[in-house]
């Protein structure tokens, strides 16, 4: 391999930090969820790269498990975001009704 594995791990460290910045600095819930995905993906990249160094499958299997779990987290997160936006919409119309009545 001409690209040493530490380059891959270094890349994953950079991606992880970018994701952390997104979680801490952005206020939009959707973007925060996307940033968490970046962080989990950075972890996956590190796992997969190390799995190559050790020539084992453990890291890859862990990465696949993480994919399934990350998808579950996204489902729940988006579900809450959708329910919350319905709720906010209703709150706004409540104010509207008060103004008219």
């Amino acid at each position: 391999m001409s690209v040493a594995v530490d380059w891959y791990v270094g890349l994953s460290a950079v991606l992880f930090s970018i994701g952390a910045a997104g979680v801490l600095l952005r206020r939009n819930a959707l973007v925060v969820l996307l940033s968490i995905e970046i962080m989990l993906n950075a972890g996956n990249l590190a796992l997969v790269a190390f799995s190559r160094t050790h020539a084992q499958h453990d890291g890859q299997v862990f990465a696949i498990v993480v994919m399934a779990i990350a998808a579950s987290e996204v489902v729940v997160g988006l579900g809450i975001v959708v329910a919350l936006s319905h709720m906010r919409r209703e709150l706004d119309t409540d104010e509207l009704a008060e103004l008219h009545g």
């Binding site: 994953s12 925060v32 962080m39 190390f50 890291g59 729940v76």
Partner: peptide, 29 residues
Amino acid sequence: GLKYLIVGGMSSAVLLYGSALVYGATGSL
């Protein structure tokens, strides 16, 4: 729920990255 999910998701990502580094250093999970 949303706040817990965001903080919890971030903490699991930190835990995952940490275990990836440990795996890299020792070759075992």
